[in-house]
Write a protein that binds this DNA or RNA. Structure first.
Lengths: 223, 223
DNA sequence: CGCCCAATTGAACTGCATCAAGATTCGTGG
DNA sequence: CCACGAATCTTGATGCAGTTCAATTGGGCG
């Protein structure tokens, strides 16, 4: 099932869509692919054939262990590159979280060639790599030094910061479940719930439905 | 004290040293710097002026919180780039762990210019970034899904894999303390000790002195 | 409207942190 | 070369945060 899923996506003309921030040359080698909710973009242990960039929607990069535990290592939003590896096989799988998730795929050799000749494209990819490194390092801090409620608060601030490019009032609609949050933070879903409750009682957030959080200004600003 | 430390390093002619895997052009813009054990290469909140590459020795990248807790986000070995950021200020500090730690420093603008014109240099930096991403993602897995003894075992395998490029017998001399390991894994130093003891009793490792570990073949190979 | 999955809350258990006390190791100087 | 002192490392005892198992509620979608 997992292995066939990537065949189900529909190719779309690249002219239809804009890869966010993408240079014209990057766009010229992109294959646009669309995915449904929960659909596998590629799965772990699968052969790595190139890189991807999120055009729209949200994806999760994750690893499944034999014992069934899942670790989400990153969420990717429009403009993020993923599938970035120099190995032959993927260490992580990637799934679409939202319906109508669109990615641009760049065959590895084409992208390498392009970056060899086009410094602007190379610079952009490098920039995205650096951002990913900083995001992961920040996440290490969260994982290593925070209590469960602090982790959840940090996650909400992080996610809010990534999603809301526009100036806004602190409200946030989560495209992801408590289980996703739990597997990202390395805690149980029950503990995530309790943390939400605690943050609500403390006045850091208010909840209008489980997926609709409002960050209270002042209480939830600082890390 | 911290802020002055980087002034104490002695400049050395670049001709004296080889940056591992470095291209000639990369070397041409490098400033070589030497540090003592525990010396600060740069500290968190300090202005970011460029990138570094470890030439010899070992460094730790870490963050100190107000409450005194320390998170080590990565160790860097010869050939690794660090200080990689697009922000104006460092989020993490970096210290030499071993005496005679040598780094190559690349002023940000010089490096950007070089990468703009030299695709090979750009490719190498990109490659190093990808490796860092994969290392961090792997570490997320460790932090999120493992018990304390598993974390320590994973750390030893990881560190052994990074240090021992040559074929060897599983023995490993740790340049780092139990406290470093604890702050990397997000557990207490006492728990690290107990994990060492447990791994020794289980037969996964043998200890010839606290800093000299031998990985028992078969028992400690797989993640 | 009703079903089903997601979210929440409760209760008991457990792994790890914390505090405290020794034991080793290593560097330094006599 | 040995003795001393100061880290570093190790082990023990206790408490608590978070897991696990279980039950209930709630929201979203057919």
């Amino acid at each position: 099932m997992l292995l066939t899923s990537s065949l189900e996506c529909e190719p779309i003309s690249t002219a239809d869509l804009q890869v966010p921030d993408g240079t014209a040359l990057l766009r010229s080698i992109a294959q646009i692919r669309t995915y449904r909710r929960e659909q596998e973009i590629y799965c772990q242990e699968q052969k790595s054939e190139g890189w991807y960039c999120v055009v729209s929607g949200v994806v999760r990069k994750y690893h499944l262990k034999q014992d069934g535990r899942r670790q989400i290592v990153d969420f990717h939003l429009p403009g993020d590159f993923f599938g970035v590896t120099c190995r032959a096989y993927h260490q992580f799988g990637v799934q679409a979280i939202t319906d109508e998730t669109v990615t641009a795929f760049y065959a590895r050799q084409k992208l390498e060639n392009l970056m060899g000749s086009d410094a602007a494209a190379a610079r952009q990819v490098r920039q995205k790599c650096v951002e990913a490194i900083e995001r992961l390092e920040q996440q290490m801090l969260v994982m290593g030094t925070m209590s469960a409620p602090e982790k959840v608060r940090a996650f909400l601030i992080y996610f809010h910061g990534r999603v809301a490019k526009f100036g806004d009032d602190g409200s946030l609609t989560l495209p992801i479940s408590r289980y996703d949050i739990a597997d990202m933070l390395g805690i149980s879903a029950e503990t995530v719930c309790r943390a939400f409750t605690e943050l609500r009682i403390r006045g850091d957030i208010s909840l209008e439905g489980p997926r609709h959080v409002r960050m209270v200004r002042g209480a939830a600003e600082t890390y």
